[in-house]
Design a protein around this nucleic acid. Structure first.
Lengths: 346, 346
DNA sequence: TTGAAAGCGTTACCAA
DNA sequence: TTGGTAACGCTTTCAA
């Protein structure tokens, strides 16, 4: 006897229809190998006929998995969330999981409480953390205490022993700097940011200079905050130097756009008088003139990899196994903001 | 007897600790009024002592709610997802719900299957749809068939009888146009987009012109695609007119940025020779020079309202009750890309 | 105002 | 290879 019609079919309905036990249906649904091919076919037929889909809450209550992956973030740029999320949702779909997103409210003390409460309620199979949360020791400790598998996206340091996915910021910066050098630039300034990524990018910048025996000039390395305005300010200082640089490498696009704006305000031609490169390939990078030469972070791919690592068990707390780190390839995008320096200025 | 230590406490542990039945604990957790104050206090004490948190899967299996809200999107701009999501996660947290995000893969035929499968597995308490999904009749029909409460964010038309949240695009466009008119502009061009919102914005633009007895000139209304390049192209056509406009209203920021770029490439000063306004307050709007005068959509607020409507039952399929529509206030943001027209050009 | 017991739909253990 | 049956942790119904 069917329950009231209209109610979604349950495993019992399928078992009855296929003439097997519910346990066998369960085995088929979970792709367990120990089922006879005929039986399996019969069950699958019944599943299709009834349009049966196992209910998540029942599965997770009875079993060990929740089929949920959590994505935790706090005040990142829109492009960053969107990119990561795109990859995470795709990865989850492929794996039959679902993505639960939580944007933490504040970086205050109750953040831990927020996380604990989420973990207790949802019991996610794994968590994905983005900067700056993935660099917050208190948060990582909370997660570790609950033994929730985690993968960090682009952590600042070594990820505190947790699995992580990143791109090679230093290498990308080195490539970008090499591009400028190969165009003929010898006087290349660097605008720093106030996040961990900036440090790594600067390393690559200096590595490239050294490889070409161009001595880094401290006066050409100016601070910034990853904000547009700080790029304007930094450029102002650079253009005021007795010998202004012929190229500017900003640690992110926003600051590069600030530098671009300041150059244009002063009638300094880009890329004619000064070449400018950024980092991140933000939306705005291709929405200005000249469009910005920059580096694309493989955000979606990184998030997808994170999901895969989570489900492959790479993020378990296996004690002495070193935490795995996956490094994904980036892409240098050459646009109109770079060119060879004007005659006599190289 | 406690289970193995380390396992999270259950309702049974709390009941034992408080000396009441599990049903009473359940009542307290669900804030049911029919509990004596003393009993309630005793239970809450036990809950705090054990750090008890009800498990979602058990709650949803036993009860009628899943405590999950779904957010469905397909290829929107990063800023749009990020904005909506910020509001949705906050709204969910306040309501003790969690946000499950699904980004559909394609706008193809299997989209319905994707949705059905999600609904069957998750049984979300409600769904939030963003454009263009919220304008897709097939998708809406699928949702309606499952009787899942839905709230549409900025649907194109009347929302097909479903609850929706929107801003008043036409009013905002009218205000923006009025701003230009009040600055002294009489020759204001409009760059259209290829989405429903563009239509509404154009209505407001024309309303403002008519109110000031400025006849809309068809040659000053040019098509676009909401993409940067189409803004460049549109501006090219406008600047080639015998009498170029003194102001350009682009139906979104990306096209406005294209127009800005084209103006600068031609040495046409902004806002001196031509004023430019956009729509959406995208990141890039404040990352260029001059920064763009535009309109901010209250995306986060709209999403938060959507969650509230969902939980208030505003989105139930109550047959003859008309679907509720909430309209949220926007914000006109005046920046550097607008000024009075140059003498003699008004 | 409180409680006992019967589910909810699935997985897991153990036996056949 | 299969099936019976006991969990899983909570809400709900019905009684007290």
């Amino acid at each position: 006897m069917n329950k009231r019609a209209g109610a979604p079919p349950t495993i019992i309905d399928v078992a009855r229809q296929a003439g097997v036990s519910i346990k066998t249906v369960s085995r088929v649904m979970n792709k367990e190998p120990t089922v006879h091919a005929d039986t399996r076919a019969r069950v699958q037929e019944a599943v299709a006929a009834l349009n049966y889909r196992p209910q998540l809450s029942a599965r997770s209550l009875a079993g060990a998995k929740s089929f949920l992956i959590g994505l935790l973030y706090y005040d990142p740029s829109a492009a960053f969330v969107a990119g990561v999320q795109q990859g995470a949702t795709l990865g989850c779909r492929e794996a039959g999981r679902h993505l639960v997103v939580e944007s933490l409210q504040e970086n205050g003390a109750d953040v831990q409480a927020q996380i604990e409460s989420m973990l207790a309620a949802l019991r996610p199979d794994g968590m994905i953390l983005t900067p700056p949360l993935c660099d917050n020791p208190a948060i990582l400790e909370t997660l570790r205490a609950q033994r929730t598998p985690c993968v960090l996206i682009s952590p600042a340091g070594e990820g505190h022993g947790m699995a992580s996915v990143r791109m090679d910021d230093a290498l990308a910066a080195e490539e970008l700097t090499n591009l400028l050098i190969s165009l003929g630039h010898k006087s290349i300034a660097f605008i720093e940011g106030n996040q961990a990524a900036s440090q790594r990018r600067r390393e690559g910048y200096e590595r490239a200079l050294k490889a070409h025996r161009l001595l880094p000039d401290p006066s050409r390395i100016v601070p910034g905050t990853f904000q547009f305005e700080s790029g304007v300010e930094a450029a102002r200082r650079l253009f005021a130097l007795p010998e202004p640089p012929t190229a500017i490498f900003a640690a992110n696009d926003f600051m590069a756009l600030g530098a671009l704006t300041e150059a244009q305000r002063r009638g300094i031609a880009v890329p004619g008088d000064v070449a400018i490169v950024g980092f991140d390939d933000s939306d705005a990078a291709s929405l200005v003139w000249p469009p910005l030469t920059t580096v694309r972070q493989p955000l979606a791919e990184m998030a997808m990899a994170a999901v895969q690592m989570l489900l492959a068990g790479d993020a378990r707390f296996d004690a002495d196994a070193p935490a795995p780190v996956r490094v994904l390839p980036h892409e240098v995008i050459v646009r109109g903001s770079t060119a060879a320096p004007a005659k006599g200025r190289a």
